[in-house]
Structures are given as C-alpha cells and as structure tokens.
Design a protein around this nucleic acid. Structure first.
Lengths: 206, 206
DNA sequence: GTCTATAAGGGGATAGAC
DNA sequence: GTCTATCCCCTTATAGAC
C-alpha cells in the first residue's frame, strides 16, 4: 500500500519547506535557466534574501530539488526491475501502473529531468552503483530468456516510451488535437491495461 | 529519393546564414533561456551587433529557428499520415524510417521542441488548418477500421513514442548504461524494422 | 529569522565610427 | 555591412537594520 501523502498547509510549513515547495513548482515549470530567484520568493510569499539565507545560492537550491525529482522518477522503476519474485508480465504491469499514477499527478516531471540533464549532464546523480545495473537486472534477464533474439534494452526503452512519452508530448498533443484534460486523463488510465497487452504481443511477435 | 543535403562551407555562407546556422546549433543545444546572444555571435565568428542588425532581437531570431525546426519535425509525419495510397503497414514503416533517419542526424530536435513548447506554448505555430486534422486523417481511419475497439490516438502516440523517445532519453540512457554512440546508432537502425513488427503485433493483440 | 537597500555583474540592445 | 564601445535594465547575492 502506498504511503499516504500528507496534505500540505502553507501556514504549517517551515520557511525552509515553503521555499523548497515553491522551488519545486517554479523550477519544474520553467526550467533552471528561465527561473528567477524572485519568482521562487514570490511563489513562497517570502523575501528574496531568505533563499540565500537558507540555501546559499540558486544553484544549490536547484541541486536539492533535482535530486529529489530524480529519486522520485526512478523510485518507481528500480525496485520493480530487480525484484526476483515477480514475473515478467507482473513487472510490466507494475511499471506501467506506477508511472501512470506518478505522472498523472506530476506531469512535468520527465520533461524537467530530461531537458535539464540534456543541458547540464553533470547534474545527473548516480542512481546506482555502476553503469551495468540495468543490463544486469532481473528484468533484462527475464526478457532475454523469453526472446534471446532481441536486445532487451530495445524492449525496456519501448516500455518506458509508452509510459512516459505521452506526458512529455502532452503540451504538443493539446496544441495538435482537441483533447482536453479529462480526455487525456482517461487515455492514460486506459494505458494501464493497454501497455501490458501491447508489450505482451510485442514479445510474441513474428 | 531524399533531397541531397548541400554541404555547407562556412566561408561561402552569407552573414545572415552564418548567424542562423549558429543560432540553430546554440538554441537547440542550450534552449532559449540559457542561450546568450553572445554565444551565437561567437559560434558564428561574428560580432554581437550583427545579430540585432539582421534579426532585430534574440526573440525574433528564435522564432525563425523554432518555425524551421517544427516544420522539419512534422514534415516527416504529416504527408505520410494523409496519404490515401498507402497501407497502414506502409505508413508505419515510412514514419519509423523517416523519424529514425531524421533524428539520427538531429538528435536534439524533439527535446528542443517539446521543452520550448512546454515553457512557452504560444510559440507553437499552427501546423495544420484545424485541431481535428489528426483525428480526421487517413491513418486514424485505417487504424479504426482494423481495430474499432481501440482509440487510434493511443496507437499513434505509442508509435511516435517508440520512434522519438529513445532520442529524447538518450542523454539519460548514456548516464545509466554503458552504451556508446555506436551502440546507440545500431539500436536505432534496428528499430526501423523492429517498430513495424511490434506495432503490427499490437494491432493484433488479444 | 526576516526584512530593506544595495552592491556587483551579466546580458540584450544600440550609437556611431569606419 | 561590420566593428568597438557603451547604455541600461535585470538578476543574483549580500550587508546591515530590526
């Protein structure tokens, strides 16, 4: 069962937490470069000087927020991928469901991480001990066993694409079609069952 | 047969074209907000004042580049989607092949468009007459005919996801795995045949 | 801890010489 | 058309009062 999210009352938050909450919002919406520390101070209902009092600089504050966001994004993937107790199908269902729940309430999360990492690769913190943990994961082994003729990374990338990309292209999709928020939400809910069905078919293809 | 790209010799380009070429590079790499007009001038090997002489402002220059980039991105999708003469399978093959060729030489293109549109939706120029042209397209009709029980947009989004998302997540993928440029290139080439096979299986699923 | 005022520098745009 | 020098606003960061 998921940890119950505490509702945040602005009045109850410490000044430090008010700043972080404002920074989360502004940084993810506008990106690092377009964000002014004034925007964050205003969003927090506080004075500009307090940002430097608590966090020393815009950059330090950003690093804290980015670290949080990356942990949030990968926390729905990494535990699933290395679970020895679940089937391949079970893992796919869990990943699809987890991501769609997470991104429905945090639609800006992936584009934020992807574009900031693109513009400054150094801010990407090490998510695991080494660079082969994905290739060494249980998930990859299970894919390889099922389809030795197919590169498991191709499958994993496609799975992530189907879960994450709709949220990444949401602003563009809304410019190109007449789907509204409710329609989009319904589509994403339907994906929770669609993705397992489709990926299963992919693994049986040809 | 594709139009042969003329190799650009810097010395042969007009000053205006030098600036645009530099702007293409710097804007797509760093994004609008993080780009300084001085970066563009330096990249072009020219003086800062010339940017304003030719383009009036950073914003005007950006709009020109963005328009070009959006046309480039959608020019591989729109003609295919409304072609009455090709099969569904033929369209999928064309879209996958076109995007992988385009993005192999322009890997930053999608993340550039997606993040700039996210940060300023107004810069998205109208790509077609109305907002239902996607839903009204031949492609969507063909999908609907094959699978009346499935929302064609779900399929289209997944297809685009499988073509485009690998390039969007490339910087992150390179941080998380040990694949190098050559490996990535090979994977994308393999996708040209993998995507048609996989999407065909999806349309037959369950 | 929180505020006001200001320092210090960056960055877009332009004036004016050539 | 192209350059140098400069203007001026905006932004980050800090000093110092309360």
């Amino acid at each position: 069962m998921a940890k119950k999210e505490k509702v945040k009352h602005v009045a109850d938050m410490s000044t430090e937490e008010k700043i972080k909450e404002a920074a989360r919002k502004v940084f993810t919406q506008k990106g690092y470069a377009a964000t002014r520390t004034r925007d964050i101070a205003e969003e927090a209902g506080l004075n500009l000087a307090l940002l430097n009092y608590y966090f020393r600089s815009k950059e330090k504050l950003f690093e804290i927020i980015m670290l949080e966001k990356m942990q949030k994004f990968f926390s729905v993937l990494l535990p699933v991928i290395n679970n020895a107790a679940t089937t391949l199908e079970g893992k796919v269902e869990a990943i699809a469901s987890n991501y769609i729940v997470l991104l429905t309430t945090n639609p800006d999360l992936p584009l934020f991480i992807l574009s900031e990492v693109r513009h400054n690769p150094e801010i990407f913190i090490k998510i695991a001990q080494n660079k082969t943990f994905l290739q060494d994961s249980f998930f990859v082994k299970q894919i390889h066993k099922k389809r030795p003729d197919c590169n498991p990374l191709q499958f994993l990338v496609s799975l992530l694409a189907m879960c994450v990309f709709p949220f990444v292209m949401k602003p563009v999709l809304q410019k190109m079609t007449d789907i509204n928020e409710a329609d989009f939400h319904k589509m994403m809910l339907a994906r929770k069952t669609l993705i397992p069905v489709w990926t299963k078919a992919m693994l049986k293809a040809k």
